[in-house]
């Protein structure tokens, strides 16, 4: 709305006085049990991870987890991790997927938002249609794209029709094409969310400021660059942060489409962890990987939040 402050006097009541401090102290003690519980629920899994990651514990050893200290190996898991090429390649691949998916999703979302910010015929129907992928369960989306990219699937059929000759590209068994296919499925599924968030941001850019810019002779491009984008900065950072974090965790559709293969061609960090957990059962090592990722993600989120504060 307006940037003007209302003439409403006195917004100082939040300043504490002696009375208020006393009340606040009472409040602290009353909520302490609940706070401790929440803290415990939030922290326990992480603390357990840290503990397990310093051992060579595996569920097959027959030792309960709390006695894992009997298999104490210190930072050896982390040392192994640093030298594990499969971990680094999974991490690098996750980064690659992110580097392609996030910008494409944000740009597509932004483009769609620009189209949808004005009214046109059939907007509502189209709007609902665009949001459908977001509501599809990722595993189901994975299955859909698994079907689409079969060598005898609809995509090859379409290409055959266009080119006029029979196309039988083995999408999911070629390392590069498989990566391409899973990236397409991710973009298909998550562009709508970007669109939704960015549209909300775009609609909230004050209409009269845009009108003022028009009256001052600003072209569409200048208006977009100088009024719309700067005012959407925060929301774009939020959108990117959400996708970066989500992308790190990408699993369902990748696993269903390729199982991380062929070989390790589409093995992201989540798939890698899944395989190590379920197939190799060296849980101390898994805990170390999980913690390493947690640290990476925390750093990314912190950077995003700092950026947002500045904006």
């Amino acid at each position: 709305m307006t940037d003007m402050t209302s003439p409403m006097p006195h917004a100082r009541t939040d300043a504490p006085d002696a009375e208020g401090r006393e009340e606040r102290r009472l409040g602290f003690w009353l909520t302490l049990p609940a706070q401790l519980l929440v803290l415990f629920i939030a922290l326990f899994p992480i603390l357990m991870q840290i503990y397990i990651s310093l051992t060579d514990w595996s569920p097959l050893d027959g030792i309960p987890w709390y006695r894992a200290y009997e298999l104490w190996i210190g930072l050896l898991n982390y040392a192994d991790l640093a030298g594990d090429p499969r971990f680094w390649s999974a991490l690098w691949r996750t980064g690659l997927v992110m580097a392609i998916c996030v910008p494409v999703q944000v740009l597509l979302g932004l483009g769609l938002a620009i189209l949808f910010v004005d009214d046109f015929r059939g907007k509502r129907v189209l709007y609902s249609t665009i949001l459908v992928p977001m509501m599809v369960v990722p595993a189901v989306a994975g299955y859909m794209f698994f079907m689409l990219f079969q060598s005898g699937g609809p995509i090859n059929d379409l290409l055959s029709m266009i080119s006029g000759q029979r196309v039988t590209i083995a999408w999911l068994s070629d390392p590069d094409l498989a990566l391409f296919a899973v990236i397409v499925s991710d973009i298909w599924q998550w562009t709508p969310l970007m669109f939704l968030i960015l549209l909300a941001g775009m609609v909230s850019v004050p209409q009269d400021q845009q009108m003022a810019a028009v009256l001052l002779g600003a072209s569409w491009g200048r208006r977009f660059r100088t009024i719309v984008l700067p005012r959407m900065k925060t929301i774009i950072i939020i959108a990117v942060a959400i996708r970066v974090i989500e992308n790190f965790k990408v699993f369902d559709n990748f696993y269903i489409m390729t199982g991380g293969g062929p070989g390790v061609a589409t093995e992201t960090i989540s798939i890698y962890i899944y395989k190590v957990t379920q197939q190799e059962l060296i849980w101390g090592y898994v805990a170390a990987i999980a913690l390493a990722i947690l640290i990476v993600l925390s750093v990314v989120s912190m950077l995003a939040i700092r950026k947002m504060r500045k904006a």
Binding site: M1, T2, D3, M4, D208, A212, L215
Partner: peptide
């Protein structure tokens, strides 16, 4: 044009 709420950037 001077808007009701001035529409300052």
């Amino acid at each position: 044009f001077v808007f009701q709420n001035y529409a300052i950037f």
